[in-house]
Design a binder for these strands. Sequence first.
DNA 1: CCCTCCAAGTTGACAGCGTCAACCAGAGGG
DNA 2: CCCTCTGGTTGACGCTGTCAACTTGGAGGG
Lengths: 199, 199
Amino acid sequence: MARPDRDLREACIAEAMAIVAGDGVERLSLREVARRLGVSHQAPYKHFPSRDHILAAIVARAFAAFARFLDRNPRSDDADADLGGMGLAYLDYARAHPLEYRLMFGTPLPDGRAHPEMMAEARHAFALLCDGLRRRAAARGEQPDDKAIVLDALFIWSCLHGLAGIHGASLVDTLALPPGALEASPAHVLGRIGDALGH
Amino acid sequence: MARPDRDLREACIAEAMAIVAGDGVERLSLREVARRLGVSHQAPYKHFPSRDHILAAIVARAFAAFARFLDRNPRSDDADADLGGMGLAYLDYARAHPLEYRLMFGTPLPDGRAHPEMMAEARHAFALLCDGLRRRAAARGEQPDDKAIVLDALFIWSCLHGLAGIHGASLVDTLALPPGALEASPAHVLGRIGDALGH
DNA sequence: CCCTCCAAGTTGACAGCGTCAACCAGAGGG
DNA sequence: CCCTCTGGTTGACGCTGTCAACTTGGAGGG
């Protein structure tokens, strides 16, 4: 069998990501991936032992793209503003890429022990947030221990993750919010995070 | 057709909820419901036009149970403590009932317009939080408008929802938290919410 | 009492999915 | 030339949601 003129494994990943980005992870099937690539339904299994494996591969890619997005702003001298910018980027990503966001955070993920690359990419995104907090603390002349940094990172991540989830899901319709509340909620929540941490 | 000695519709709902509570919503199939009840695979369709309809029914039940849980503590004279108690109840529910929690908040829900009861039950839970904030404001002699109440309710809900999601999902393993951070995070996040709102 | 209708079930079929298993062709190495 | 391995194809199986036809029992009316 000649080396194919394309790497089918990478093509499967790209196609799976396109399906998820277009229609959501619920529509991801290996048979549809195969159909779109013009190969037999079993061909993707030559590269991925199971559906979970291709899922883990695209989750890892999604986390990597997410982390790049979080890190998109150049670092400034103002650690508070950097942290706020990261928070905005988080919400922007969730809004711009709702289906990818749900892939990462709204889907039972494959077992992390079997997919270390996926785990590493997810950790990277969280680590950016922890780094932002460390720089902020240093700029204020503080030296919190690692656990305190992580706890505040969890606080922030919880707020952002929760709000992104509310924005992205049908919960928005469900809650029957008064006019303007939805649009105002990102700035408000970010402001409250600032209140909590002390400006 | 005689009135059956059981209400199959209610039996389907109960069985569906048992499957979700035991194994998660991914394992919910109408055929399994039918098998467990000893009826033919098509029988549940006499009562529910589609899988979405039974899903909406159990989501409504889950929201109702959730709201009862949030409201479990008697009201005291201390509105701050009541609000904190509600926050703890939120996290307790998510921890005690992870699969039901994920049913409500981690699952693409059926179209809310087709299922008004489900919507109403979800709104009730959110309204409890808004009420708690109103009572707190009144106790402080403040009169925030409706939008301000809702925005802070969204802030709190975001925090709790985000944290519950982190606790409940494989993200906990993914993030490789330092020892003790996970156990400390509920108190920490609730404390930060208090910081944000001003004690 | 008989007949009709309807509700609630049963049975069978279909298409889609993930996965198992057997088979095939071509490339590379001995 | 032969053998092995890799990466595909084909076919089958069991599971799901749903469509469709059929059956049965009971209620209601004449």
